[in-house]
Computed example of a mutant assay.
Amino acid sequence: MTQARTESAFKGLALRLFAIACLSTMSALIKLAEARGATLVETMFHRQFWAVPLVTAWIVAGPGLGSIRTRRFGAHVSRTAIGLCGMVFTFGAVLLLPLAEATTLQFTVPIFATILGALVLGEKTGWHRWGAVIVGFAGVLVVTQPGSGTFPLAGSVVGLLAALFVAIVAITLRQIGKTESAGTTVFWFSVLSLPPLGIAYAFQLQAHDWLTWANLIAIGLVGGIAQLALTASVRFAPVSTVIPMDYSSLVWGTLFGWLLFDAWPTPWTWIGAPIIIASGLYIVWRERVLHLRNTEAVSEAATS
């Protein structure tokens, strides 16, 4: 039993690492597409359009198309609206900032999730996690160096808004996940996002060379594969186990930035990124500790 659990955890970790590598590759492709004349709307449309066949095939091969039936269509519409706003900021940060810096700001997601959990969901948040939040934002200040002019202010704001919306999406998915499977949620987000993106895309249609078209298609395919791998990773291992793998994106962001765009992280990024990462890891660890305590308390109450 222990060996099977260990093998399952390793599968989850491997899938998470693979998903992060795909997401980092997608970010690099987004910057390359923009350098070749593609707009933000174009990249967003192709990201969703080419992911739909992948997601559909995954559902057909798994639970079947019948699993996409839902009684919470309105919840999926709301999730799509929030998700599209998040995509605007996430893609925008990639376009406005060097890859390593855009990636580093994404590490503030656990910080925003803690704040939103306390303010929106009324979750109890002790001084341990509030302390981690403060430390994490100190790391953000180290990276962005506000007022110094060395880091684009617009990029900093967009990058932090991207992390905020990712945290909002996580909370939304937590609510939807009580009745909907991950595959159902991914499917409806992909499909429902196409009409608004398609309308916006219709006003920005333009010709490209074959390499740019290939780039745009790759954004959708690689992004879709990443989404499926992320979903599968939490089937094999707990979220708290696989989340630390997300920080491997800094390695990819630094590597792609150097190889493709001749951009190297600033010295302040090297200092601030570990602070933000440590803050996020501590928050994840603390949530895991509290979860185990609550589980033990429930078990003891049930047996007494």
Rank of each mutant, 00 (worst) to 15 (best):
T2K: 12
S8V: 01
A9H: 03
A14R: 00
F18M: 05
A21R: 15
T25S: 13
M26I: 13
S27K: 08
S27F: 11
I30P: 13
I30N: 13
E34C: 07
R36Q: 13
A38P: 04
T39W: 07
V41W: 03
E42T: 01
E42N: 04
E42Q: 05
Q48S: 15
W50R: 03
P53H: 03
T56P: 07
A57H: 04
A57L: 13
A61C: 10
I68L: 04
A75N: 12
A75T: 11
H76Q: 10
H76N: 05
G83Q: 04
L84Q: 07
C85I: 15
C85S: 14
C85P: 07
C85D: 04
T90I: 12
L96K: 00
T103M: 13
T103K: 08
T104E: 09
L105R: 08
Q106A: 09
T108P: 04
V109M: 09
I115V: 14
L116N: 04
L116M: 10
G117A: 09
A118H: 12
L119T: 11
V120C: 03
L121E: 11
G122Q: 10
E123V: 04
K124V: 14
G126S: 08
G126N: 05
W127V: 14
H128C: 12
R129C: 03
V133P: 06
V142S: 01
P146S: 01
P146Y: 11
A154K: 14
V158G: 08
L160G: 08
L161I: 04
F165R: 08
V166E: 06
T172W: 06
T172R: 08
L173E: 06
R174C: 03
K178T: 06
A182V: 14
G183S: 06
T184V: 13
F187E: 02
F189N: 14
F189T: 13
S190T: 15
L194G: 03
P195K: 11
W210F: 15
W213F: 15
W213K: 05
A214L: 12
L216G: 01
L216C: 03
A218F: 02
V222D: 06
V222F: 04
I225V: 15
A232V: 00
V234C: 07
V234N: 03
V234Y: 14
F236W: 12
P238S: 07
V242Q: 11
P244A: 06
Y247R: 14
W252E: 00
T254D: 11
F256S: 04
F261H: 00
T266G: 13
W268I: 02
A273G: 01
P274Y: 00
I276Q: 02
A278K: 06
G280E: 03
E287I: 05
L290Y: 12
L290E: 14
H291G: 12
H291R: 10
H291F: 15
N294A: 15
E296A: 11
S299W: 10
A302L: 04
A302P: 07
S304H: 15
S304F: 13
